[in-house]
Design a protein around this nucleic acid. Structure first.
Lengths: 200, 200
DNA sequence: AGGTGTGAATTATTTCACAGCG
DNA sequence: CGCTGTGAAATAATTCACACCT
């Protein structure tokens, strides 16, 4: 999050930013900003704030964004399409290395830059070029099966959009996004008329 | 999350579930399950566990899912399409009440059940039928502007997919999903080879 | 003055452990 | 017995507040 706003500031040519300013942008507190950043090092200058450009580079380094990551998308449905076209990915060093599906109607069709490949080729393709990240955009039923396969084929991180729990070995990182659950959270908030201070 | 798994158990005809079992399913601890549920009431039976069907109903009630929510989708791009087609929404009581866009090529075209409407009609439409939830699937640049408009028109909860911070008044609930940020989290985990225990 | 880095104090969350009910 | 509900204990996260640098 800090990186996002620091990049904005950097683009606008701002040289330094105080913890106060970053807190405002990110919707948190100055103390929080200082604690968070100090966990990784001592980047600020007393009396001045944090050097925007330098800190941006530091955070990129910390997040492992200096290299390019090959990402495969599994599932050439609507969600897969949305993800493949999402500019944010390329801009931040994530290259769509392939899109896979199992349905014959989709295999072979061009898809943005890529061509939809048969999911049967997966293991083969993954051994040819190191690909560690997979985005899962398939129905819930197939999810765990596919996960086991891609983990077996060497995938080390998964971003899951299938609305189901999936299990991975300890050496694999997993993040899940469940859109229905997000809406239910909003339903709860509306039902209980809770306060919200407008954070992002 | 509990609701999701309880519904599964209910469908399979299971009558009761212990905090141990729920913890296993949800990837948490039995103590956590009991604390969480006890916050809302005393649903379990000692020696037996929680009555699945009954608890499911309680949670639906708590989450405000007994009623139907009208949801509008703003932005008829790829992400909007993915969301409009997402079954999970309807299954859980969220009815797509309209899809809006500003681009003339898209307006008027059928779109699943709905027809893409001109975003200029927004205020009008919203006053005709109570609609409190909006899903934002538009580019970052337009986001805050649109948010101000829909909030002005009476929207009280927003699920934001635009990769930018948006600000809302205190009475409006906001959840943001930032896919690039999720991937960056995975990049960090890979770079630092952290452990992960396979939670959902 | 202006603003970081960081121990100490506070507040929140999670886990423990056990009394008590079915 | 088995398993919940819940105070008490242990951890974790956030905020305070101030020494210290520029």
């Amino acid at each position: 999050m800090y990186l996002r706003y620091l990049e904005d500031l950097d683009t606008r040519g701002q040289r330094t930013a105080s913890s106060d300013e970053l807190a405002q942008l990110c919707g948190t507190t100055p103390a929080q900003v200082r604690k968070d950043l100090s966990f990784f090092g001592s980047f600020g200058k007393r009396g001045l704030g944090y050097p925007v450009h330098e800190l941006t580079a530091h955070l990129r380094e910390i997040l492992g964004l200096e290299r390019e990551w090959r990402v495969i998308i599994i599932g050439a449905g609507k969600i897969g399409a949305a993800l493949a076209n999402y500019r944010g990915f390329l801009q931040r060093g994530f290259r769509i290395a392939g899109v896979y599906d199992k349905s014959p109607e989709k295999i072979g069709h061009a898809w943005g830059e890529a061509i939809v490949r048969d999911i049967a080729n997966l293991e083969q393709d993954l051994t040819e070029a190191e690909t560690l990240i997979a985005v899962l955009a398939i129905p819930a039923d197939d999810a765990q099966l596919i996960v086991d396969r891609i983990v077996g084929a060497g995938i080390r991180a998964i971003l899951n959009f299938a609305p189901t729990k999936i299990t991975v070995p300890a050496h694999v990182s997993l993040k899940s996004v469940n859109m229905a659950m997000e809406l239910e959270g909003l339903s709860f908030a509306l039902t209980h008329a809770m306060a919200n201070s407008g954070a992002a």
